[in-house]
Design a protein around this nucleic acid. Structure first.
Lengths: 189, 189
DNA sequence: CGCCGCATGTAATTAGTTACATGATTGT
DNA sequence: ACAATCATGTAACTAATTACATGCGGCG
């Protein structure tokens, strides 16, 4: 039930609505833990029932009232304790890498396309990460300690994404060579 | 329902039992897609019902009969088609990185411990990956095309794991500095 | 004697996805 | 006119985890 703790972690920076959380997931914690808005809304309710979060309603006329969630003392305690539990959750599931196991002469062109697609995504993520770094972490030494933790996670994300870009480049190069020699062979037969 | 296709992919190398699949997941596809033996057994049954796999029973006296699964022609077709679908599944969930968002003066020692733990795991995984590379992929140029795809996935794994080790080292160094200055400050107050 | 490996599962629960729903407001 | 943003959700389903179960054989 780690999504609970992820949400509480997001609320360390101050109260937020489910909507805010869902969006901010796209630029921060969501790099390391994805969740849909449905899951977030549902979990927030559960957390309110447990009194790990409290919630204040903000009336609005033309749309549903905002529900602003914040950590309770109980929630803070729980979060602090959670940090001391050994992390069990390290899930990686990547269809692309599994698909690569299916490489053959017929689909090699398509695989190159998949890799290019992945590269493009990685590239745009990289740009986003770097933007965040420049904006909020330009002088890491001056950050308060908690933000240094966030910064380290960001660095992990940046390293990983760079790594992907390089791997895509290498892989595309290799597959293109393969593709050409295959085409040649077919042409010369 | 990608676990289905992951299992079928594993069976490209030949028939296997659920038990074999569960174990071989630890040294190959499982790097990119984890599954428990329960999930595997359940999915294999479903795949048999769909006739994407067939299964031959091997009688044994002192333990449950082995069920040896293999791809059917229908399964092969399905798998080939699956490769052409755009990969939707790229899940990453990493508690450690979320925990780092909770860094503070109280838990910094513990965080260093978590990072060391991660480093150790990464190190031993790295050794495993390299062993696999040496054993089966020493001469990548000579591999049949499909195995080159597997090799590329392995390379992605190796790069990633190296990347983690370096990141852990950097992060531990930074946190240890932080830890010392904190201790100093506390000592000198 | 007790634990590990082999080989399969069932049952209960939790986590996560997908589709659908509402309805005003702002931008193209 | 049409899509996107804001802001919340319900309902149905699928995927995945956790706990429990069996039972023999080999090893220290």
């Amino acid at each position: 039930m780690a999504i609970a703790h992820v949400l509480m972690t997001a609320l360390l920076d101050g109260e937020q609505t489910g909507y805010d959380l869902a969006r901010s997931f796209d630029t921060s914690l969501g790099f390391f833990w994805q969740a849909t808005h449905q899951q977030i809304y549902a979990e927030l309710k559960k957390l309110k029932d447990k009194e790990w979060l409290s919630c204040t309603e903000i009336s609005q006329q033309s749309r549903p009232n905002k529900l602003n969630y914040q950590l309770t003392d109980l929630g803070k305690q729980e979060l602090e304790a959670w940090v001391y539990e050994i992390p069990r959750h390290k899930v990686v599931k990547d269809e692309l890498l599994v698909k690569l196991y299916n490489l053959d002469h017929k689909n090699i062109g398509h695989m190159i396309g998949l890799l290019s697609e992945r590269r493009k995504e990685a590239q745009s993520n990289h740009a986003l990460y770097e933007k965040i770094r420049e904006r909020h972490y330009a002088n890491p030494e001056d950050l308060p300690l908690r933000k240094k933790g966030v910064y380290l996670s960001l660095l992990a994300g940046i390293r990983e994404i760079k790594q992907w870009i390089e791997w895509c480049d290498d892989s595309i190069k290799l597959l293109e060579q393969e593709f050409e020699t295959t085409t040649h062979r077919q042409a010369s037969v």
